[in-house]
């Protein structure tokens, strides 16, 4: 049985630890503190927690002001509202003046499930990645999420960390050190490489096993640091395996797939197949149904791998 852990639980616990070691760490939320787990911080540090009500734009602005006043604010809500409703506040009040604000959003992607497309964030990575000066992190599991949160607190400047509602299978046994701009090679391959983020890292590892049964050797890279991207690792994969499949719980437009394709096409063109949420609104449903609909399953990724290999042969 795979060990399943909640990224947002680990965020909540880590934020409390950071609060204990640094009195300048503060937290803000928009009426979703129970869901994002900032409620754990609120309970221990009520004076350093600010519930802003259902007002994401004001939350981002207030966080920027707190940062200007020397604090290290962690602002949390669902990914769709954090990045969509308040995009311009993040751009103008946070990223442009390089405010030391950490945006940690939960409920990214389609595994939000039953709430439906209104709550499914498939554009957040794209929205954050296009902002100059923003660091964008999508951790592969709870351990990596915890260390990314610790790293964010120690880094001076704006950071976006994307978490999800559902528990993820762990990729890392216990502790995982997050390094910005660096990826983690989980499996070396010969025929192609999966470059994945978030839960798709685990799915890519499962796909790798399926492909191995058919004699196809796939590498797997955990690209939690989407911006800055570990370009060297992407280029090494392009050179060494000659084909790449990106995998993310995000639109095929603008996210990890785009970042990888941009790098590969400019520096070492090889086939890149993007597995992700199709350019449409899906539906309500269970996370499993939605991931199946988006083909974000081991079989779906294995199919993408075969398409990449076919393109590679044609070359």
């Amino acid at each position: 049985m795979t060990n399943m852990l909640s990224l947002r639980d680990f965020y909540g616990k880590t934020l409390v630890e950071l609060g204990r070691s640094n009195k300048d760490v503060v937290a803000l939320d928009c009426d979703l503190s129970g869901s994002t787990r900032t409620s754990m911080f609120a309970k221990e540090f009520p004076d350093r927690f600010f519930n802003m009500g259902v007002a994401e734009q004001d939350m981002m602005g207030t966080a920027a002001g707190l940062a200007a006043g020397g604090k290290i604010p962690f602002a949390s809500t669902f990914a769709i509202f954090a990045t969509g409703r308040a995009w311009e506040q993040i751009r103008q009040s946070i990223a442009y003046p390089d405010a030391n604000v950490k945006i940690v959003a939960s409920h990214g992607g389609i595994t939000v499930g039953q709430d439906g497309p209104s709550h499914q964030a498939g554009e957040d990575i794209s929205l954050m990645r296009s902002i100059p000066g923003m660091t964008v992190i999508v951790p592969a599991d709870a351990h990596e999420a915890a260390d990314a949160v610790r790293w964010a607190a120690s880094h001076v400047g704006p950071v976006y960390i994307r978490l999800t509602r559902d528990k993820f299978p762990v990729v890392y046994d216990e502790k995982k050190t997050f390094a910005v701009g660096k990826s983690t090679s989980l499996k070396k391959g010969k025929d192609l490489t999966f470059v994945a983020c978030g839960m798709l890292t685990y799915v890519a590892l499962e796909a790798e096993k399926m492909l191995a049964n058919d004699g196809i050797s796939a590498g797997v890279i955990d690209m939690a640091s989407i911006k800055p991207l570990d370009e060297q690792a992407v280029l090494d994969a392009a050179v060494e395996t000659g084909a790449i499949v990106t995998a993310e719980e995000h639109s095929i437009i603008g996210g990890l797939g785009s970042a990888v394709a941009e790098t590969v096409s400019e520096k070492h063109p090889v086939p890149v197949i993007r597995a992700g949420i199709p350019d449409t609104y899906l539906s309500s449903g269970t996370p499993e149904e939605l991931m199946e609909a988006a083909h974000l399953t081991p079989k779906g990724l294995a199919d993408c791998a075969r398409r990449a290999l076919a393109l590679k042969k044609k070359k």
């Binding site: 602005g61 002001g65 707190l66």
Partner: peptide
Amino acid sequence: VEITTGSLGQGLSQANGLALAGRLN
């Protein structure tokens, strides 16, 4: 210049943040 502005409507939130930071300090 304490706070970056230009896009209207965003300064008061940031001023609130400065005031809250002041309270904590």
